[in-house]
Amino acid sequence: MAPPLTRRAVYEQKQRRRAVVIATVSTTIALVAVVVLVPLTPGWEKVKRSFFDTDIFVESFPGLLEAFMLDLKILIVSTPLILIVALLIALARGARRPAMFPLKAFAVIYTDVLRGIPVILLVFLIGFGVPALGLSRELSNPVIWGTVTLVLSYSAYVSEVMRAGIDSVHESQRAAARSLGMTGQQTMSSVVLPQAFRRIVPPLMNSFVSLQKDVALVSLIGPVEILRQAGIDKAKTANFTPYVAAAVIFLALTIPFTRLADWALARQRRRTGATTIA
């Protein structure tokens, strides 16, 4: 029988204690440096007043939170649309039949063009360009075109992630499915896609976190969402604190999702059996 504490357990316990001590000391030093040194800078008093004004923070917070609801709405509508469009584009790119060639070519151009243009530029081009066509009032709503822009841009990125996921499923899986007499479509939907999706969950989560932030770009073409509301509050109070408040609201949403993405990645790594090397 092994002793209550094996040689390795004793060693690892020592290592752990050492790590905790080092982490504590270095964190303390870093914190002290920030707390002590930053206020020593010549502009600190001014920065404190214009960025961290408690009264303004409290005052603008409810309005910002309300404006953030529009961001959430755009996010909730665009996410499923992005997934659907991205899947269609990914499937079109993988098409092998000659009759599908136009679709395939379209998919290639779609991803090339939309991934190549900065989101911010795309927001301007579509947000100002499409309503200029003189559409009806309802269709000229910038929220619609902002959402469309996000769907276009993100679906181009996500379709590439999906394509990589589809390609990562080994050819032998297709061979097994086809040998049962399954059609190419059945093989894709029952065998390839379910495996591909499991693999791309972590990168998809990453894109989702990134999308949460880019929703704010819609403000550039008019809608009063959180970033624009913060700008209005800033102008009213001549103070930057509303921006800090907006940042806090964003973090409250993005941090949990970032953690979720990390967790998904770690779980996947455990499942595929890769071990951590010391």
Binding site: S172, Q173, A175, A176, A177, V191, Q195
Partner: peptide, 8 residues
């Protein structure tokens, strides 16, 4: 198949 190719 030699390598089974079951659907995991």
């Amino acid at each position: 198949f030699q390598s089974f190719n079951l659907f995991p």
